[in-house]
């Protein structure tokens, strides 16, 4: 960073940004939205299985965050705090969908067309994992994302998805096997 440039909000650390936003500084909150919005969008898209509702879910999450920021005592955990909020909002959507569609797997949609940039990275492990996750049954994917990305415990996942813990264990075991098999092909 240029030593001679004045300090700018967009480069300030989380503690400064979170402190200001909690005190009502809208510009600091905007920095928070721009800093963590993309990660939250990526996350919500993973949990929801498509990006149709991602914008809404992430916007709702930030509005909740603004209202509750003053309760966040440790600014150092703001990222995981935001991820928890977007998790919960995403799961609320899934629950709402379930009331309308009485099937286990709601997104039977054909795989989305891949843009050129996606094809270019098709050999990377992440792209392979991404494909594997997309191909997975919804509940397996949700469990995996909550467990491995949001770092929820088995019990927390069970509570969030209204499933017995034993079912969550079973779903995760299958997800693990599916992904391990994919990984075989990466080697």
């Amino acid at each position: 960073m240029d030593v001679h440039s004045p300090p700018s909000l967009s480069q300030a650390d989380d503690r400064t940004i979170v402190g200001r936003a909690a005190d009502g500084d809208v510009r600091a909150f905007e920095v928070l939205v721009r800093r963590y919005g993309p990660l939250m969008r990526a996350y919500a898209t993973r949990v929801l299985g498509s990006n149709d509702e991602t914008d809404d879910v992430v916007q709702e999450s930030f509005i909740t965050a603004w209202q509750q920021l003053s309760t966040l005592t440790d600014a150092g955990v703001v990222k995981s705090w935001l991820m928890r909020i977007v998790s919960r909002k995403s799961i609320d959507r899934i629950r709402a969908r379930k009331q309308h569609v009485d099937i286990d797997d709601f997104e039977q949609e054909a795989p989305r067309a891949h843009g050129p940039e996606r094809i270019a990275e098709a050999h990377s492990r992440e792209a392979a994992l991404s494909r594997a996750l997309r191909a997975m049954p919804a509940q397996q994917r949700q469990c995996w994302v909550l467990k491995e990305i949001a770092e929820y415990s088995y019990d927390d996942i069970a509570a969030e998805l209204d499933l017995p813990t034993s079912t969550v264990r079973g779903l995760l075991a299958r997800a693990r096997k599916n992904l391990m098999r994919e990984m075989e092909e990466w080697r």
Binding site: S10, R27, E30, V31, R34
Partner: peptide, 8 residues
């Protein structure tokens, strides 16, 4: 409603 001026 906040009268917001964008930081960026």
């Amino acid at each position: 409603v906040v009268e917001a001026v964008s930081a960026v």
